[in-house]
Write a protein that binds this DNA or RNA. Structure first.
Length: 555
DNA sequence: ATAAGCACGC
DNA sequence: GACGTACGTGCTTATA
């Protein structure tokens, strides 16, 4: 490998490095841990090769620090978000364009496989140089596949935005969570005792086997219980709900499940996740881990904080603005995936309904049931809503029949009516599957690809699953791109205007910000405008914005 | 260690 | 008769 010889690195080593691209690779003592410390940095510039500078940033030559901050020098690396985050904790702001080899790989392979991790597994010094070489290989591939917009305009600018959001974290009321934890623990104890009394024995409610035996062998509440594909008794909430009137223990089990999930998943985990230095929770956002281009959130996952059940909603109240001078702001896209579907399919009736500002589910119900908007009942609207969303997930007539609790033929008729009214959607679904069959992949609006290996599989289930992916991925992926672009633009604008408000969280179609109270009007306007205009759709884009002292109030 | 089943979000 | 609408993270038990 073309690394330079081993004499002591000096500031002089960087003199003469090209001013365009530098490979960088951080050396870290506890990778993947939030307490990770920088133990060195490798800097690679051709043709000089790669040099390693040991120790924390304070020990590095000033030329190294200067090149990291130099907006004229592009940084090439592998998983650059982590590097940028760690450097920012040391007070170093990385400037200049980015080229992340891991993300380039993902875009080029379209999720088919993870390319051999030659850039991640080696020591920092080799990694920096390998990344630099890889860039030359990947750049023309990105261009050839028309992925430069997705890469340079979306994914690369998003990296420092995500790093800033992770660094910022969100304030959480620990005492409130601990109080809720105590209350819930008592409830759970009572529920367990009640189940034991009804069963006449000690039941291990965490054991699916024991719950199955109790319900279907001891109490025989169902003649022919449904089994999972491995032969266990199915005991999921839907299954239990169907027999909830057969025996009082069933509701107790459902209650236990809901409460233990909240307790263990949130009320015990979130207090532990509060950083003792900042007093805030700092999640990790992954932008390279999903098939469609969505983000994910982990350690802890802040994209699945409860909201639907009354008990779960209490947890949201514990997510607070950073101080009394701030408010939490939540901005939601309204029905973004349906708008994207309308746009991608160019279905005229759907577009017209969105342009008219109609309630889309009521409009759908009126058309499918052959009535007027005024005569649409809540039940009709609920069914139409389920179909609207089912369509974007590629749902079948069977699936719809199950969901709506109607016969298969009735469901088929419903879907027939639906497509009669929205012929553009039928055409879209046919065309996208045809495209996937022919090319082996689908694309989002900006050209991001997802390869679908099984689109021509002989196994019908595998093939059907691939067809559902073909229908849904362009929709979900385009919506994901839209909010990513909005995030980049919002972050840039907050910086440019020297505002104190900050992006905190992204939950797929929602952005959460800490908003400095005097900036409320300006930031509300800024967020709404950037979310609406991130991508140009064939339909208007609507946003709901709320503010409050906690996340529930804001939502 | 890994898989299965379940539950939370969008 | 099973299956049954996409994308995730993370908990627990059961199995190896």
């Amino acid at each position: 490998m073309n690394t330079s010889n081993g004499h002591q690195p000096t500031a002089k080593a960087l003199v003469g490095f090209p001013r365009a691209n530098l490979g960088i690779g951080l050396d870290v003592n506890h990778p993947g841990n939030s307490s990770a410390q920088i133990t060195g940095i490798a800097i690679a510039g051709l043709p000089n090769g790669s040099r390693f500078f040991p120790g924390p940033p304070a020990c590095w030559p000033k030329e190294v620090l200067a090149s990291l901050s130099d907006p004229e020098i592009r940084k090439v690396g592998y998983g650059l978000k982590r590097d940028i985050l760690l450097l920012s904790k040391c007070g170093i702001e990385v400037h200049g364009g980015l080229f992340d080899v891991a993300i380039a790989n993902t875009l080029i392979t379209g999720g088919r496989h993870r390319v051999q991790d030659e850039c991640s597994a080696l020591a920092a010094k080799e990694r920096a140089l390998t990344c630099l070489h890889k860039q030359d290989e990947l750049c023309p591939q990105l261009q050839g596949l028309k992925l430069t917009k997705s890469f340079h305009d979306v994914e690369m600018p998003l990296i420092p935005v995500l790093a800033a959001m992770e660094r910022e974290g969100i304030r959480v009321d620990k005492d409130s969570l601990l109080t809720q934890r105590g209350t819930l623990a008592n409830f759970i104890e009572a529920t367990q005792a009640s189940v034991n009394a009804l069963a006449g024995r000690g039941v291990d409610l965490d054991s699916l086997q024991d719950v199955g035996k109790l319900l279907f062998e001891q109490l025989r509440i169902n003649d022919k219980p449904r089994k999972t594909r491995t032969g266990q008794y199915a005991t999921d909430a839907d299954t239990l709900q169907a027999v909830v009137n057969k025996h009082p223990v069933v509701q107790q089990i459902l209650d236990y499940r809901e409460r233990i999930t909240l307790l263990r998943g949130y009320l015990e985990q979130l207090p532990e996740a509060i950083n003792s230095t900042t007093g805030r929770i700092h999640t990790t956002f992954e932008s390279n881990d999903t098939a469609t281009g969505r983000l994910s959130s982990k350690n802890p996952n802040l994209q699945n904080i409860p909201i639907r059940s009354a008990l779960g909603r209490e947890i949201r109240k514990a997510f607070l603005s950073k101080s009394a001078d701030y408010l939490l702001l939540s901005a939601d896209y309204s029905q973004i995936e349906l708008r994207v579907l309308a746009s991608l399919s160019r279905e005229e009736s759907l577009i017209a309904a969105f342009l008219a500002g109609d309630d889309i589910h009521s409009t759908t119900a009126a058309r499918v049931f052959g009535t007027t908007l005024e005569k649409v009942t809540a039940e009709m609207r609920a069914k139409a809503k389920m179909v609207n969303y089912g369509i974007s997930y590629g749902m079948s007539a069977d699936g719809l029949a199950h969901r709506l609790g109607i016969s298969r033929t009735a469901a088929a008729e419903f879907i027939d009516q639906y497509f009669e009214n929205f012929p553009g959607l039928r055409r879209y679904m046919r065309d996208i599957i045809k495209f996937a069959r022919k090319n082996g992949f689908i694309q989002t609006m900006t050209g991001r690809r997802r390869y679908l290996a099984e689109i021509n599989a002989s196994n019908i289930n595998a093939r059907k699953a691939a067809q559902r992916n073909a229908i849904n991925s362009p929709i979900q992926g385009t919506a994901a791109e839209m909010i990513k672009l909005a995030m980049v633009n919002i972050h840039r604008e907050l910086k440019a205007r020297h505002l104190r408000s900050r992006l905190l969280l992204q939950v797929h179609d929602e952005l959460v910000l800490d908003v400095y109270r005097p900036e409320k009007m300006e930031v509300t306007e800024l967020v709404a405008e950037n979310m609406k205009t991130a991508l140009r759709l064939e339909v208007p884009v609507a946003i709901f914005i709320g503010t409050g002292s906690n996340w529930l109030e804001a939502h």
